[in-house]
């Protein structure tokens, strides 16, 4: 597989996985990626983390560490639990009736599903971009300013500066600067998605979750989003769920492969795609199933 992105230099890879410190159940394929991430700050990690929809276990005892300010891709066939894992990180799973979790999911030293966690505050720190572009039916400006306005106390000029900065970060500023008061739904699909990213950035989050952000877009718009992810690398921790293995290979530093609710393998992206350690991973990336 051809790699378009050069790997950051601090990624001196240690492939030998030591599993001694990880509690393991006999059947689970749970692995730790502790050693792989030796030189990384860990922003989010889970240990034996499971999510249930009613009685159906969607992800099963996943232990995963996600490095700060890196792009981590989660791949896997449909129904493997990759979106569920992503939605757990900012507790969007709360919206689904009957959804509950077990185990540990920790962000910045605090358990995300802890009893004293306010999901509203959590979501201000963990932004999200959805599968389909979902701008509000408001003006472009109001869309971006929505998040900052929630906390209030910002003057008009501060707000305007923040909107401009977010739009510039999302590489959309030049396209929309002359029509900030137009309805956001008048933008093209790719622009809308970049607007959604800008909207998420305006809240100044630490993590950006992307749930198949290009699956509803055409190839050109997809390319623009991927370029944007490249721009954001190093500034934000990005977790991206994608169906598209090439995309994962192009944009991510690390890749996690989920299958039937289990985390099968986690590795630096070039390694996972070139020298997968697990048979299932190899089967999947070579297109034998999925």
């Amino acid at each position: 597989m051809k790699m378009q992105e050069t790997q950051p230099e601090n990624q001196k890879l240690n492939i030998n996985i030591d599993m001694s410190d990880i509690p393991r159940t006999a059947k689970s394929q749970t692995q730790s990626n502790a050693d792989i991430l030796e030189n990384e700050d860990i922003q989010v990690f889970s240990r034996d983390f499971s999510v249930f929809y009613g009685s159906n276990e969607a992800i099963k005892k996943v232990s995963l560490r996600i490095p700060a300010r890196k792009v981590t891709a989660i791949i896997g066939p449909s129904g493997c639990g990759k979106s569920t894992y992503l939605h757990a990180v900012n507790r969007m799973n709360d919206l689904i009736p009957g959804c509950h979790s077990q185990g540990k999911l920790v962000f910045d030293g605090e358990e995300i599903y802890g009893p004293y966690v306010d999901p509203v505050l959590l979501r201000k720190r963990v932004g999200m971009v959805f599968q389909k572009p979902n701008p509000f039916p408001k003006s472009i400006f109001d869309n971006i300013a929505y998040g900052p306005r929630l906390s209030g106390g910002k003057s008009k000029s501060e707000l305007y500066g923040l909107v401009e900065k977010s739009l510039k970060d999302a590489v959309l500023w030049d396209e929309v600067k002359d029509r900030m008061n137009d309805n956001a739904l008048g933008l093209s699909g790719g622009q809308q998605q970049r607007l959604c990213i800008a909207r998420a950035l305006a809240v100044e989050p630490e993590i950006l979750l992307m749930d198949e952000p290009t699956s509803a877009l055409d190839p050109r718009a997809t390319a623009s989003i991927e370029d944007l992810i490249g721009e954001l690398r190093g500034k934000y921790t990005i977790i991206i769920v994608t169906h598209n293995m090439q995309q994962a290979a192009r944009v991510s530093d690390y890749t996690a492969f989920f299958y039937e609710g289990h985390l099968i393998e986690f590795a630096p992206t070039d390694q996972l795609f070139t020298k997968p350690k697990e048979k299932k991973t190899e089967d999947y990336i070579t297109g034998r199933f999925g």
Binding site: L95, V120, R123, K124, M128, F136, Y146, L150, R199, V203
Partner: peptide
């Protein structure tokens, strides 16, 4: 009102009431 509006507002850190007032009711 599309569920995506609600998701978007919540993911930006709006409370449920705020989501209703600023996104759902206008739409």
């Amino acid at each position: 009102v599309p569920r995506t509006y609600k998701e978007a507002a919540l993911s930006l850190g709006a409370s449920k009431m705020r989501t209703v007032l600023t996104v759902i009711l206008p739409a």
